[in-house]
């Protein structure tokens, strides 16, 4: 009798796990009230790619497209209780949509898709600080730019250093890091914007978010780039040099990671680094389950969604 119930339990367990794995059953069906499911969706380097790549025989033909991305995001929002959507910069430049409309459409579409936050990439400076400022009213989501000091520029007070999101009782602290502008961006496009050291900035804000604000999770939106062969600071280097960053959502290097990279950080914990190519070809998805009672992250699962 005992043997039987044990066997049937194991069988059920296996089936349930498979169903959850296939995404056909919401985790809540199995979770006690102690488990909270959080879904992080992310893009980077979309570069004004509003329509899918044209069918011209090119490598990426038929891939991407905002209308499809919006539909996927909406579907996930309908399925999951707690969703956050981020972009890691370089929203601007790459198709005539940007030349013609100056980034207005990119911001309006991101607002319609209800992006929760973005950081600035180097190409977001392409029309100068004025050009960015002019489009800001179209963005109903914050730009988190912790290591750019805009206090002596037209953007003073128009971007933020961090934001704390509350989803299903979880506190998620987000800060943002941009790349060094000197030598990469025309001086007249960034004027008196000051670049602050990314590692110092990361330490400052993770300490604040994790310890002062007691966030359950800390996310860095980064346009530093995935990894370099020299000493240049990158997402991978940042992960190893800091502690308490749970997730770095990266950009700039247009890196297609089939799966995120988990890096042992300076505190002995794990920092996950992800980046999903460019041009909106992919939507990154990371599913976390939190044990609310312990305030501790138990598992995460990632998928790269190719919009094609």
């Amino acid at each position: 009798m005992q043997e039987n119930s044990r066997r049937s339990f194991l069988k059920l367990s296996g089936t349930s796990a498979a169903l959850i794995a296939m995404g056909t059953l919401p985790l809540e069906a199995f979770a006690s009230g102690d488990l909270v499911h959080l879904t992080i969706l992310h893009t980077n380097d979309v570069h004004s790619r509003i329509d899918p790549f044209p069918m011209d025989g090119g490598r990426n033909q038929g891939l991407g497209g905002v209308a499809r991305r919006a539909s996927v995001i909406e579907k996930i929002r309908n399925e999951e209780p707690n969703v956050l959507l981020f972009d890691a910069g370089d929203i601007f430049q790459g198709t005539p949509y940007f030349n013609l409309f100056g980034g207005e459409l990119e911001f309006k579409l991101m607002t319609r898709m209800a992006y929760d936050a973005a950081t600035m990439g180097n190409h977001d400076f392409d029309n100068g600080l004025d050009g960015f400022d002019k489009q800001l009213p179209h963005a109903q989501f914050p730009f988190i730019t912790s290591n750019y000091d805009f206090s002596d520029t037209i953007l003073n007070g128009k971007t933020i250093d961090y934001k704390i999101f509350k989803k299903g009782g979880i506190k998620i602290g987000v800060f943002g890091l941009g790349i060094e502008l000197e030598g990469l961006v025309d001086r007249k496009c960034y004027l008196n914007a000051r670049y602050l050291d990314p590692v110092e900035t990361a330490n400052k804000w993770t300490r604040f978010l994790k310890h002062d604000q007691k966030c359950d999770m800390v996310i860095c939106l980064s346009h530093l780039g995935y990894k370099y062969n020299n000493n240049k600071i990158s997402d991978v280097a940042l992960a190893a040099m800091t502690r308490d960053i749970d997730l770095i959502i990266g950009g700039h290097t247009h890196t297609f990671l089939n799966q995120p990279e988990n890096i042992k950080n300076a505190g002995g914990g794990i920092t996950t680094v992800n980046q999903v190519g460019f041009a909106g070809i992919n939507l990154g998805r990371l599913d976390y389950v939190f044990n609310k009672a312990k305030g501790k992250k138990q598992r995460k699962e990632s998928r790269v969604i190719t919009i094609g």
């Binding site: 796990a17 959850i20 794995a21 509003i50 497209g65 905002v66 209308a67 499809r68 919006a70 539909s71 996927v72 909406e74 579907k75 459409l105 309006k108 579409l109 319609r112 749970d246 089939n258 799966q259 995120p260 988990n262 914990g269 794990i270 996950t272 998805r285 990371l286 389950v289 992250k297 138990q298 598992r299 995460k300 699962e301 990632s302 998928r303 790269v304 969604i305 190719t306 919009i307 094609g308």
Partner: peptide, 30 residues
């Protein structure tokens, strides 16, 4: 067993084709 600890994510690559369709509101807006 199922809820693998943080640092060992179970990644999946899901390709989404045309069958998922386009958001009509966005298409119209565009």
């Amino acid at each position: 067993t199922y809820y693998s600890p943080a640092g060992a994510p179970a990644p999946r690559l899901i390709q989404i084709n045309d069958q998922l369709g386009s958001d009509t509101a966005i298409v119209n807006y565009l």
